Simulated scan of single mutants.
Amino acid sequence: MEYNPAIRPARIAAWRLMADEAGFCCMVARSNTSGQPIGLAFGRPGRPHHWWWQQVRQGLDDAVAPRCDRTVLDDYFEIAEVHVAPSWQGHGIGRRLVTNLLDGVDCPRALLSTPEVDREANLAFGLYRSLGFSDVLRNFHFPGDHRAFAVLCRQLPLTASGTR
């Protein structure tokens, strides 16, 4: 994920705390041949006391565009992380991880953040767009990270194919 090494320990600590929360869910993909993990996705229901909720809310409050719908934070599932080993990317593993993660989620929408890339030209953006995720915030900066992020939203449920 190219996190700044200075924030890596804080991210790991936050993920460990997240795993103990009610509603936390994690999916792991394993190689058919070796059994080794090749991908994971995890998340939880979003709540106002969460750091991510607070940062995105501030971004929505600061946004000048009238299209910024602040109600997206009222009830959502946060897809906190999606990772697929580089040699396994582009084979549908990320799609299966996300669709399985969101299957049965009892929230009306899912939100996530992903690093911005020029013209959305990477596999992550391709996956999220193909699943129907749309913009909430663009070029948003989280404290402690120099990169710009897109915050994306998708109404739930997903169908078996991953789209509505």
Rank of each mutant, 00 (worst) to 15 (best):
L137S: 05
R44Y: 02
R57H: 12
R95C: 00
V82Q: 01
C25L: 15
L40D: 02
L158A: 06
H141D: 09
L40F: 14
A63C: 14
A13G: 09
G35D: 01
D74V: 03
M1R: 07
H49A: 10
F133K: 08
R11E: 10
D74S: 13
Q55K: 04
G162E: 02
T159D: 11
R109S: 15
A110K: 05
I93N: 02
R16V: 14
R16M: 14
V72H: 03
G144R: 04
P115S: 09
A10I: 01
M18N: 13
G90P: 05
Q54R: 14
P45W: 02
P9R: 06
G39Q: 02
G90V: 03
E81C: 04
D69T: 00
Q36N: 03
A10D: 14
A10G: 12
D74N: 13
R16P: 01
V72C: 11
F42K: 00
A19H: 03
D135S: 14
G126Q: 12
M18H: 15
R44L: 06
W15F: 14
A148G: 09
L101G: 00
R30D: 07
D106N: 14
V64H: 13
Y76C: 06
V117S: 12
A63I: 08
R30G: 04
A160C: 02
R44D: 01
R138E: 11
P143N: 07
Y128E: 11
H91T: 01
L112K: 02
M18V: 04
C107P: 08
G43S: 07
Q55Y: 01
G162Q: 04
D20L: 15
R96C: 11
L97W: 00
F140R: 04
R147L: 14
Y3C: 00
E116A: 14
D20P: 06
V117R: 06
L112C: 05
G92E: 05
P143C: 05
E116P: 04
F133R: 07
P108E: 01
F24S: 06
F133Y: 14
T33M: 04
E116L: 12
Q155Y: 11
V56D: 03
Q155L: 13
A63E: 10
S134P: 08
P108I: 03
L131P: 13
P5H: 01
Q89K: 03
P37Q: 09
V84M: 03
D103G: 05
A14T: 10
G90M: 02
